[in-house]
Design a protein around this nucleic acid. Structure first.
Lengths: 199, 199
DNA sequence: TGTACATCAGTGAACGCGCGTTCACTGATGTAC
DNA sequence: TGTACATCAGTGAACGCGCGTTCACTGATGTAC
């Protein structure tokens, strides 16, 4: 044993965090089917009974992982949107962030959208609606709502189909991104037009 | 025992079919997590070891169920599309069929799109592309391909979000259908415009 | 029409497995005095 | 600064569970002659 080898302390001090992190990695590696509490505990270097002190059940841990996913998704959307200077590009940017998140976290993305809808997705839904509404400020609430549906469906569907390898199985990431951008620009054009703006 | 009570024959004669049917019901009732070979066998009125003579594994049965789902999905798309008299309405009709299938078979729909892409989805992909291409015959192959992506993403994303209760949780089926139709018409308009047709 | 026999499609017992969860426990921590 | 003690966050053994899969078997079928 070298000096740098520390004996694992009895108390982990950060087990909750460690379990969330380990769980997220495990999820990406094995999918929902291969996700078990015991394996999370193993990866966090702790006995299999320890998680019970932090999560009431397997589903509780999954819910926490999903909830954090939504926060991160919203952050990625916002980060991309912030780089744009006009409402239409912000809408595109937000879509880029959404797709990038999905591409980077396929299983997490799937998990987030296969649980019952929770409060957690609210940040994403609201950010999305706000950006669409800002892009077509003069449109009626009805049209804003329909275009918000439309934009979300387009973005969500594209990345979903990509993750399910229905679209672009053999293509490079770069080619896929181009395809995604084409969809985003068609979507944005439609939204702007419905809002009464110039194309 | 009445005369109509028949003793179960030793040979089922149609076990493969019965397992597929039972499995599909089970899937809708319990989801993928609650799907087991043993329960399928139980529902088919057969010992748990019997399915091994028809399916090599649980995943084999799931694959068969998913494959049939794609056939049925293609049929529903075609049935709706056939009722339309012009290319644009055909595209809308096809989307209606797609959404109707998803709404009627939420878990099956999810299953079909969570396995690795198989040959089974080919019918759907090709029918979809053909309808888009027929709607914009003069467009370049590139545009046809992009609009095909776009249309599929829109339809797939919308029904996906509905099934995940991200869209329209509390709404009636009728209200939801209206929202779906609004999306389909926005989508179709975009496709037609990209193809150089009048709006 | 009858019979022998190969093949098919069931049965039920048994296997090993890893899981979630519970339990009594104990080591470590941190606070009150 | 020291000590008592409540509380917290671990441990490891044990529970019961249902699962997929395998196995030797047997009842039923259908075909060749």
């Amino acid at each position: 044993m070298t000096e740098t080898t520390r004996k694992a302390p009895y108390h982990h001090r950060n087990l909750r965090e460690a379990l969330v992190t380990a769980g997220r990695t495990l999820l990406e590696e094995r999918g929902l089917r291969g996700f078990t509490l015991r394996e999370c505990a193993r990866r966090a270097g702790v006995s299999h009974a320890a998680p019970a002190h932090h999560f009431t059940s397997l589903d509780d841990l999954l819910a926490e992982i999903a909830a954090r996913g939504f926060v991160e998704l919203a952050a990625m959307m916002a980060a991309e949107a912030r780089r744009a200077t006009d409402p239409a590009s912000r809408l595109i940017g937000q879509g880029v962030g959404y797709m990038a998140f999905g591409a980077a976290n396929p299983m997490l993305f799937r998990l987030m959208f296969s649980q019952e809808r929770s409060e957690a997705s609210k940040v994403v839904r609201e950010a999305h609606f706000a950006t669409v509404a800002a892009a077509i400020p003069d449109a009626s609430p009805e049209i804003k709502a329909r275009m918000s549906d439309f934009a979300w469906a387009t973005v969500h569907g594209f990345i979903g189909l990509v993750l399910e390898s229905q679209i672009g199985g053999a293509e490079s990431a770069k080619a896929l991104k181009t395809r995604g951008l084409a969809i985003l620009s068609a979507m944005t054009e439609t939204v702007m037009r419905a809002g009464g703006g110039a194309a």
